[in-house]
C-alpha cells in the first residue's frame, strides 16, 4: 500500500526522491527512518542542510567551496603560492589533497567544457583563472581534469589560454592504474600510457 500522496510524510518522500541515486522505495525507507529517529537527531540533518546552503560560498580566489571569503588552502601561508592545480570539481580537489603530496594552490572550474552539451568557457570558472594569472606570481599550472572527452577539451583550451602568461603548463599523467594487469588495459589507455612514459 502506498503512502498518502498529500500528507507530510509524502512530502518528505517526494523531496528525498529528488536526491541522486534515491528511488521511491529507498526514499520511503529513509522517510520512515527519519520518523523513527529521535527528534534532535532528525533535526540535526535539517540544520546541517540549512547551514550548508546559508553558510557556504565560493572562495573568492580559487572558487573552491569555502566558509569564509578565502578557502582554507588559499589562506594557508605555508602553501606554495606559485603553483596552481586546476580541477573540475571540489570533490577532485579533496581527492588530491588526501594524497598529501601537493602543497600548492588550487583552482576549481566548477565544470568542464563539453562540445556535446554546448558547455563553453563562459559556463565554467576560466576567466577567474585568467585573472589569477594576470595578477602574476604563478609559475606553474597543473591541469588535473578528468581523462574524458570533456576533460580533454578543457585541458586543450586551458593550455592555449595559460601559455601566453609564461607559466609552465603540465597535465597529470594518465595510463595504467596501479595494481592492474597491462593485458587488460584498452587501446586508448595503452596509447596514452606509452605517450606519457618517463625516463628512469
Amino acid at each position: 500500500m502506498g503512502v498518502d500522496q498529500q500528507g507530510l510524510l509524502a512530502q518528505l518522500i517526494r523531496e528525498l526522491v529528488r536526491l541522486p541515486g534515491i528511488g521511491q522505495k529507498t526514499a520511503q525507507r529513509l522517510a520512515f527512518h527519519v520518523l523513527k529517529t529521535e527528534r534532535e537527531e532528525a533535526l540535526r540533518l535539517a540544520d546541517a542542510i540549512r547551514a550548508v546552503k546559508d553558510g557556504l560560498s565560493f572562495c573568492r580566489q580559487c572558487r573552491n567551496i569555502a566558509e569564509e571569503e578565502l578557502c582554507e588552502f588559499c589562506r594557508d601561508p605555508k602553501r606554495d603560492h606559485s603553483k596552481i592545480l586546476v580541477v573540475e570539481e571540489p570533490s577532485t580537489l579533496y581527492a588530491i589533497e588526501r594524497t598529501g603530496i601537493y602543497r600548492g594552490l588550487y583552482h576549481v572550474l566548477l565544470g568542464s567544457l563539453s562540445p556535446l552539451d554546448g558547455v563553453g568557457p563562459a559556463d565554467i570558472k576560466v576567466h577567474e583563472l585568467e585573472d589569477r594569472l594576470k595578477d602574476g606570481g604563478i609559475q606553474e599550472v597543473i591541469l588535473a581534469t578528468n581523462p574524458t572527452i570533456e576533460g580533454e577539451a578543457t585541458a586543450i583550451y586551458l593550455t592555449k589560454l595559460i601559455k601566453p602568461y609564461g607559466a609552465t603548463v603540465s597535465r597529470i599523467a594518465y595510463g595504467i592504474p596501479v595494481g592492474m594487469d597491462i593485458e587488460y588495459a584498452d587501446e586508448v589507455t595503452l596509447i596514452k600510457s606509452l605517450e606519457g612514459r618517463r625516463d628512469l
Binding site: K53, F58, P115, G118, V119, A122, D123
Partner: peptide, 17 residues
C-alpha cells in the same frame, strides 16, 4: 549545442550557493 561551443553563452550555474 553549437559547433562553435567555445563562443556559447553561459547557461545555468552548476552550483546553487
Amino acid at each position: 549545442p553549437p559547433v562553435d561551443f567555445l563562443a556559447a553563452e553561459a547557461g545555468e550555474p552548476a552550483y546553487e550557493l
